[in-house]
Amino acid sequence: MITKDYVILAPQGMHARPATTLIKLVKQFKSVVSLRKEEKLVRLNSVLNILSMTAKCGETLTLVIDGEDEAAAAGALEVFFTEQLKDL
């Protein structure tokens, strides 16, 4: 299992576009990927889940990845959170 903290860089927070992009990215991997905000942990297989977290710009969220291809998934998600997200 891999966990890592990320600051949400999307100016509008985790709104529809970043949420959709994230879900599509996660679907490419077999690992179970979840996102934790404070006590709330949601699985990243549902746009509704992400939207209902209301993660705002500047908030820190914890990414949890578990599965056989977790290293590859972590690499792709690192790029998503550090590079892609700010433009979404």
């Binding site: 529809a16 576009r17 949420a19 959709t20 879900i23 599509k24 297989n45 549902s46 746009v47 509704l48 889940n49």
Partner: peptide
């Protein structure tokens, strides 16, 4: 395009 992509995800959402 972005909005419709979100709709596609929502239509297939496992929660719903």
């Amino acid at each position: 395009i972005d909005i419709l992509e979100t709709h596609i995800e929502l239509l297939g959402d496992p929660q719903i």
